[in-house]
Amino acid sequence: MTDNMIYTNKLTKCFGDNLAVDRLSLEIPAGEVFGLLGPNGAGKTTTIRMLSALIGPTSGEARVGGYDVTQDGYMVRKSVGILTETPGLYNQLSAERNLSFFAKLYEVADIPAQVEKYLRMLGLWDRRHEEVGTFSKGMRQKLAIARALLHEPKILYLDEPTSGLDPQASRIVREFIAGLRQEGRTIIICTHNLSEADRLCDRVAVFRSKLLALDTPTNLRRQIFGRMVVFHLTEAQPGLAEVVGGVDFVQKAEIVENKLVITLDDPEAQNPTLVKLLVEHGAEIRFVGELRRSLEDVYLHLVNAPMAEEREED
C-alpha cells in the first residue's frame, strides 16, 4: 500500500438511493498511466472527485499521495492536478490571468515563471493576453491542462482530455500526456476514447459502478479473446479448419473467406508447427499475422456482459 500513489479499498459513493461507485479497490503505483473506462454514468467522474477530495466517500477508504482523502483534503488537493470534464475557464480573463489566478490558489512560489513555462509548453504564449472567450475548444483544453500542471503535481487526473477536439488537437494533447508520463507523474485518464486509452495507459480499469476488469490492455485482450493468428491462404481448402482444430494446443480454428483464424496461447512457439501442418496439407500461405482485438472489443465485451450478481440473480 505504501508504494502506491493511489490506493482505494472498497471505496463507495451513494447519492441517495443511487449507488454511483460500489466498493472500488485500486492500487496505482507511482509513474503509472491508468485508464478509467466505463459508460456514461458509470461513476468515473465521481471516483475522480473522491480522489481529489472534492466529495467524500459514503464508505471505504482512499489514500492519494499518502494522504487520506477524508482526513487530509487540503493536502490531497495540493498534491493533485485535475482536468475537469468541462475546462471551466474564466472567459473574460486572459489566458495568463486565468493561470496566475489558479497558481495563487495552488500556492505556487514563482507564479510568472510557472505560467510562462506551461503557456510556452502548450503553445499558448503568443496568445497569453487574449481573453479566453475568444479561444477555440482545443486551446481552451490546452489551457485547462496547463492549469492542472501549474503546481507540478505528482498525480494528475484527466477527465476526457480529448473530448470534442479535432484530430490534430487530440494528437497534440495525447503527445503532451505521453510527455508527462516520461516525467514520472502518476496519471489517471477517464475517457471514452478507447484507442487513446490503449495507446496511453499502462493499465486500464473497466467499470460500471463496480470494477469489471483491471489489467494491461494486452492482458485484457488475451484473457477475454486469447491470441489469434490469421493465415492468409491463396485458397482455403475444405476441411482445413478441422485438421488444424485437431491439434492439441489449438483452442479454435475457423475459415473466414480465404483466411484461417486460429486461437492459441503462444503463437511465437506454436506457429512453426502450424505452418508445417498447413503446408503438408497443401495450403499455400501468403501471409501470417496476429489478429489484434481492439480495446473497444474488450470494453464492449465487458460492459455488455451481465454482471456476476445479475447472473446469480437470474
Partner: peptide, 14 residues
C-alpha cells in the same frame, strides 16, 4: 453557469 467552480474547489482553498 461557466462551470468554473469545480476547478476552484479542486485547489487547496477553504
Amino acid at each position: 453557469n461557466t462551470r468554473t467552480l469545480e476547478p476552484v474547489l479542486a485547489t487547496p482553498i477553504t
